[in-house]
Every structure is written in structure tokens, then in C-alpha cells.
């Protein structure tokens, strides 16, 4: 597909239980800025018509909100999403399509890209317009975060990128902003049922998901033993944060693998990351160094974690962490 110059920017948003996920809202905010810079129209695309907070998307900056008639995202159907997005994009020829990374970028987005004869720049942490070339410059980490690459689309359109959750700060909503709500009904030439959802097993833990959390509290080897994780769990609870860990506690069986942050675990990029007794091995840093604010608490002033920390505290974490928990709890009343 070649550019028709319309310059539209799309954000494919994700919903859960009818509500738009926070990272999608933050991405709308970023896209609003990009759209403002080059006077493009911003369209939020929802994969279902059952979106309770569609008006919110306008408030955060969408000029138009497309509500597709696909199955609600809780009833996954990648085939349907791909087909509808491709049909819509062929019709409207957007210049840029953005989405948050996650399971969308493991299937729907790259498949859509191939169908549109273009590529994807996945897991970006920053997006900028180059005004000279009018190209979107996408910055993405590789090699475990030890390297950054700028990616551009010299001649194919749309330019498609997925971004890490929390790569961008949530903007301020403008309730007066009105967007056009457009329901998109397709000729249901039934998507060939080559894949079928048979059952859904939701994680019952009820805990905050690590890779979506706005705040992550991470405990490392410095905690000494499994029981001491209770201390960081309490801090996480006060902050409404997800509990993370580095590799040694997982290897030693203190904490399940699902909590591991790092190159071989989850890659997170929250607004606030508090590392308690984490030394900061390269493989761990690769999984969290793009966090907005990093707080490091460690007794060893030479611990590599301090190199990426916004705020460093050298000292006994068994004193500092409970104090912090107490202070925050008091603050919350």
C-alpha cells in the first residue's frame, strides 16, 4: 500500500470487560501529540462495539472512534480481528497504525501488516515524527536492551508500530473534546473458522499483572529468604503494585517464575519501579530499565542497579522497606 497522503493515525486499542486498558489510553495521548504536530486525524479503533468508555477515548484525544463489530476481546478471535482491521485499513488507508505490545503484537498486528504488504516495528519505547522526511521514527530496544535502534518505513504504508505498555505517560483528558463515534458493520462473510476458541481460563490470582502494572515492587536476592518476600508484598499492596523479582529468587524457588522481571522473564516498563535488594544484573536491567522512575534500595553502593536508578537509597532494606510501607500507608489514611 502506498501512502495516499491522508496521514491518518490509528491506535488499535485493547479492552477488557468492556473498558479500555490503561496502556491503550496512554498511547492515545502520545498519538494525539504526534497527530497535533503534523495536523493529522487520530482514530481510535476498538475491536468490539461493546466499549463502555468509548467517550473517554475522545476525551484523551481521538477525533474518531471506530467500533468494529468483531467479537468482544474477551472472546478472542484473532482471525476476525485481522480480517476486519485489514478491510478497514484497505478502505481508509491510514498512514500510521499503533498498538500496545502484548498478545495483539504476537499475532493480530503482524498478520495485519503482511496482509497490507507492510512491516511492523514491535515493542517500541519512543515514537517521533521526522518533519523532513515525514516519516515516523520508531525507537526500539534489542539485544536485551543493550542496544537501541531507530526504525523507519522508507516507502511502505501504513507504518505500523507496537509500543511497550507504559512507554508513555497517560495524558490529561479533556472532557469537552468530542469525537465521532462510528460503528463499523461488516458484511459478515463469516471469517473462515480455521481457529476456534474452546475455553478461557482466567488467571485467578486477582493480582495486578506484572507487565500491565503502573507500579512494580521488586524483591531480589538481598531479601535472603522466601519468607522475607512478605515485606515487599506489603509494600506492593499499599501501592497497588505488582510484585516482581529477579532471577536468583526464582532459581532458588522462593518466588514463582511468573514474577520474574528480566530478559528471560517479563519485560516491564511501569511508571514506578521499586527494586529492593536487587543487584541489577544485566539480564534484569534489560527487563526494567525503561521504567519511568526507578527507586533502588540496596546495601551495596556499587550495585549496578544504582546506575539506572532515579532515586538510590544505600542502606538496610529491612529498615527502609517497612518504614516506606508505613509512611505510604499513613499517607493513604
Amino acid at each position: 500500500m502506498t501512502s495516499d497522503g491522508s496521514g491518518d493515525i490509528w491506535v488499535v486499542t485493547e479492552q477488557r470487560d468492556g473498558r479500555t486498558k490503561a496502556p491503550s489510553i496512554a498511547l492515545i495521548g502520545k498519538a494525539r501529540k504526534l497527530a497535533g504536530e503534523r495536523q493529522s486525524r487520530l482514530t481510535a479503533v476498538c475491536l468490539s462495539q461493546v466499549v463502555e468508555d468509548a467517550a473517554q477515548l475522545a476525551a484523551y484525544g481521538a477525533d474518531r472512534v471506530y467500533l468494529l463489530d468483531g467479537p468482544v476481546p474477551d472472546d478472542w478471535n484473532d482471525d476476525a480481528y485481522v480480517k476486519e482491521l485489514v478491510d478497514l485499513a484497505r478502505r481508509e488507508k491510514p498512514d500510521v497504525i499503533l498498538a500496545t505490545s502484548g498478545s495483539l503484537s504476537s499475532s493480530v498486528i503482524p498478520r495485519m501488516a503482511v496482509a497490507l504488504d507492510t512491516g511492523v516495528s514491535p515493542n517500541c519505547i519512543s515514537l517521533d515524527f521526522d518533519h523532513q522526511s515525514r516519516m515516523l521514527v520508531q525507537t526500539r530496544p534489542a539485544f536485551g536492551g543493550s542496544l537501541m535502534a531507530n526504525v523507519v518505513f522508507p516507502n511502505r504504508r501504513p507504518q505500523i508500530a507496537t509500543v511497550r505498555p507504559h512507554a508513555f505517560k497517560k495524558g490529561d483528558p479533556d472532557p469537552s473534546r468530542q469525537g465521532e463515534m462510528i460503528r463499523v458493520d461488516f458484511d459478515r462473510q463469516a471469517v473462515s473458522a480455521k481457529t476456534k476458541l474452546l475455553n478461557v481460563v482466567k488467571d485467578l490470582s486477582g493480582k495486578v499483572r506484572l507487565d500491565e502494572a503502573e507500579v512494580v515492587v521488586c524483591g531480589g536476592r538481598g531479601l535472603g529468604k522466601a519468607e522475607n518476600f512478605q515485606m515487599v508484598a506489603e509494600l506492593a499492596e499499599v501501592l497497588g503494585a505488582a510484585l516482581g523479582t529477579s532471577r536468583p529468587p526464582v532459581d532458588d524457588g522462593w518466588v514463582p517464575y511468573a514474577h520474574q522481571v528480566g530478559q528471560t522473564g517479563k519485560i516491564v516498563s511501569p511508571r514506578l519501579y521499586i527494586a529492593c535488594g536487587v543487584a541489577g544484573a544485566p539480564q534484569h536491567l534489560a527487563g526494567m530499565q525503561t521504567s519511568e522512575i526507578i527507586v533502588a534500595i540496596n546495601e551495596d553502593p556499587r550495585a549496578p542497579i544504582f546506575e539506572v536508578a532515579t532515586y538510590g537509597m544505600v542502606g538496610d532494606l529491612f529498615k527502609i522497606v517497612p518504614l516506606l510501607t508505613k509512611k505510604l500507608r499513613e499517607a493513604r489514611g
Binding site: 501488516a113 504488504d117 507492510t118 512491516g119 511492523v120 516495528s121 521514527v137 530496544p141 536492551g145 543493550s146 542496544l147 537501541m148 535502534a149 531507530n150 526504525v151 523507519v152 518505513f153 522508507p154 516507502n155 511502505r156 530499565q289 553502593p301 544504582f306 546506575e307 539506572v308 536508578a309 532515579t310 532515586y311 538510590g312 537509597m313 544505600v314 542502606g315 538496610d316 529498615k319 527502609i320 518504614l323
Partner: peptide, 26 residues
């Protein structure tokens, strides 16, 4: 379709601040 236009090492924002004092004041 995509091209890497530049590769660079990430700039570690080393404007980190070390908070001094006893645990209470930290």
C-alpha cells in the same frame, strides 16, 4: 518495508539522585 536508520547504545539517564541520611530521612 522497515529499515534500521540508526543504532545506538541507550543513554542511561545517570541523573540519578542518591538519597542521604538515616533510613527515616531517606
Amino acid at each position: 518495508p522497515t529499515r534500521v536508520s540508526r543504532v545506538f547504545f541507550p543513554q542511561r539517564a545517570s541523573q540519578g539522585e542518591m538519597l542521604q541520611g538515616d533510613p527515616e530521612s531517606q
